[in-house]
């Protein structure tokens, strides 16, 4: 909690990636969260294309601290026959409230038909879908402007807000054009003025705090929001208000 605002980190990973120092140790995560006032972290496991393996590992992880961690369902079009059954299971049985997708672990840009059954599912359920976005051909934020109007009940979130200037402009343009597109803030680049740009050009009600924990410590990513030249009201929306609305909390 920061000045009465419940803080929700919308972007986090479980699973170890030791060569990069990524450790999904709940004690480390809670220490980092508690040191800075982060109440809840949204987590996903993107390392298993079947979806089921990672989602089950995630469910057990979240169950250790169900008031602090929120699981997002992961599936991949690399195993298309499993996508919808696994999404149905993860949402209905594991009680995950949103979906995470990671195009770089597939050969298909996320505007291609292989992904569309996932968007239809999200649209029917009114779910949020968080994408990895950047300047790579698989993950360009401009694809959001194609899919968002076709699935108006789903909410599409550009993870990293495109990461660098050109794809970031695409992400902002998609958010300006479509009310169901949102921008998430984590990035190793930490370029000056980016948070201000997202707020000024897309609106504070469309920006979500994310950290990329446990690949990155959530505290410097939180510091991007706290030290940005934006209003306190904008900070409150970004830190938690918008995430609560998207997740129905």
């Amino acid at each position: 909690m920061i000045d009465g605002t419940q803080v929700i980190d919308f972007h986090g990973h479980v699973g170890r990636w030791d060569p990069l120092g990524m450790k999904d140790d709940p004690d480390l995560m809670l220490h980092a969260m508690d040191s800075a006032g982060i109440d809840k972290s949204c987590l996903f496991n993107i390392f298993h294309p079947d979806g089921t393996t990672g989602n089950d590992l995630l469910a057990r992880f979240v169950a250790q601290y169900p008031d602090r961690f929120i699981g997002f369902a992961y599936v991949s079009p690399m195993m298309p026959e499993r996508m919808i059954p696994e999404l149905t299971r993860a949402i209905d049985e594991l009680k995950f409230p949103a979906i995470k997708l990671y195009p770089p672990y597939t050969p298909w840009p996320f505007n291609q038909p292989q992904w569309h059954p996932i968007y239809e599912f999200a649209d029917e359920r009114g779910l949020a879908v968080l994408f990895h976005t950047n300047g790579g051909v698989l993950s360009r934020p401009r694809y959001l402007a194609e899919i968002a109007p076709r699935y108006p009940n789903a909410k599409f979130v550009a993870g990293h807000s495109g990461n660098t200037a050109e794809p970031r402009a695409e992400a902002i343009a998609a958010a300006q054009a479509h009310p169901n597109v949102y921008l998430e803030t984590c990035s190793t680049y930490r370029t000056p003025g980016v948070i201000e740009q997202l707020v000024n050009e897309a609106g504070a009600d469309r920006v979500l705090f994310g950290s990329d924990t446990t690949l990155m410590d959530p505290r410097p990513q939180l510091g991007k929001i706290i030290t940005a030249r934006i209003s306190d009201d904008a900070k409150r929306q970004i830190l938690g208000g918008n995430a609560r609305r998207l997740l129905g909390l």
Binding site: R190, T191, P192, R219, G223, T227, A228
Partner: peptide, 18 residues
């Protein structure tokens, strides 16, 4: 490493460690 990076985030981080 301003202006490659924003000036505040790592300073904020250091102040929220043990």
């Amino acid at each position: 490493w301003y202006s490659r990076y924003a000036m505040g985030p790592m300073l904020f981080y250091l102040h929220h460690t043990n």
